[in-house]
Design a protein around this nucleic acid. Structure first.
Lengths: 187, 187
DNA sequence: GACGATACGGAACCATGGTTCCGCTTGTCA
DNA sequence: TGACAAGCGGAACCATGGTTCCGTATCGTC
């Protein structure tokens, strides 16, 4: 995929600049930003963007994929941590915090407006890796048993929605985490 | 506001038909539906819609206001219920269920895409009425103390986002409710 | 039935935003 | 330095969707 021929120096420079600007801008305002705006901020013409990325969604995807990859890696690292419960909650919280700060990531995770294709295979990897942490935490008794990997996506989406409204950081996450812990009378 | 002169028979009929169709369609798909589509489904021309409602947002607002009014009324009714905790959770759950079934309502409550003006004064009334239930439940010890009226909006928004993803009804709400209850070691 | 006011339909208008195209510029390599 | 491929800018194109306009149809009244 990355084969082909080496890019010309100016092309490489422009591509990087576009990615940089797009990353910032998408993170702030999500898919709502226009290609024209990105082009202007990056100091290039729209044509240049379209030479490097066949479509707006492709550009968006290129950026998001990188972020998700990092999350997948992190989840895998935590998969054999000493404290399963702690590992789960730490990761869960981190994903949400990331998504709150990065609207692009949020839209990708919540699959808003036909973004699913963008995430694709990697999205499934994230769900799977998260699922491992989940299962371990449940086995350790740190988490209620009636939550599955699919629910996690919903929970993340919801927490992000909460956090981005109630500007006070972390309170909403804390409430949900409390709800997730195994209650005294187990379950 | 409702003064003016009485509408002609056909006008009254058309207005009702438009409201009916718009209510259904907005509920299903939110602001994403186009005025043209509503016109077609209602069997009228776009011009007719614009005679009755100066703008798309006004039509949207007319529908949403009615729903919110009903919620405000309900909250006020519950304000002197016997069981403050139960009243709070019943209302909280109901608002979410309504919003899940009604995308228009959800968008209005979460103030998506400049809808704030649509809700306006009534939105504040809802927040206030909800706040009364909240305070009573807290005083009764049924609810953690560190949640305020503003948070409720965030919580509702988040729960709706959760519920509409994790198709399994009510599980996400239950988790959040558990998180909201006063934990054993009070707080 | 006739006439004025009211309402209607829907083509036309305008703005926004993604995508394409092509004449010009620039990097690279001999 | 000359030549050619690679890359560039941005006007133009197209689709979508809100809003306006106006010639025509319908209602209500005399």
């Amino acid at each position: 995929m990355s084969a082909g021929k080496p890019l010309r120096a100016d092309a490489r420079r422009n591509r990087a600049r576009v990615l940089e600007v797009a990353e910032q801008t998408f993170a702030q305002r999500g898919l709502a930003v226009s290609v024209d705006e990105i082009a202007e901020k990056a100091g290039v013409g729209v044509g240049t963007i379209y030479r490097h990325f066949p479509t707006k969604d492709a550009l968006f995807g290129a950026i998001v994929v990188d972020r998700i990859q990092r999350l997948v890696d992190e989840a895998r690292d935590l998969a054999d941590a000493d404290d399963p419960g702690g590992a789960f909650f730490r990761f869960f919280t981190h994903v949400i915090e990331e998504a709150v700060l990065n609207k692009a990531l949020y839209e990708a995770l919540s699959e808003a407006a036909g973004v699913e294709t963008v995430v694709g295979e990697l999205g499934k990897q994230l769900v799977a890796a998260q699922g491992v942490l989940l299962a371990r935490a449940q086995r350790a008794g740190a988490l209620r048993k009636d939550v599955d990997a699919g629910d996690l996506k919903a929970l993340v989406t919801g927490c992000v929605a909460m956090e981005s409204q109630g500007m006070v950081s972390g309170r909403m996450i804390a409430i949900v985490c409390d709800g997730l812990r195994t209650p005294a009378e187990n379950r």
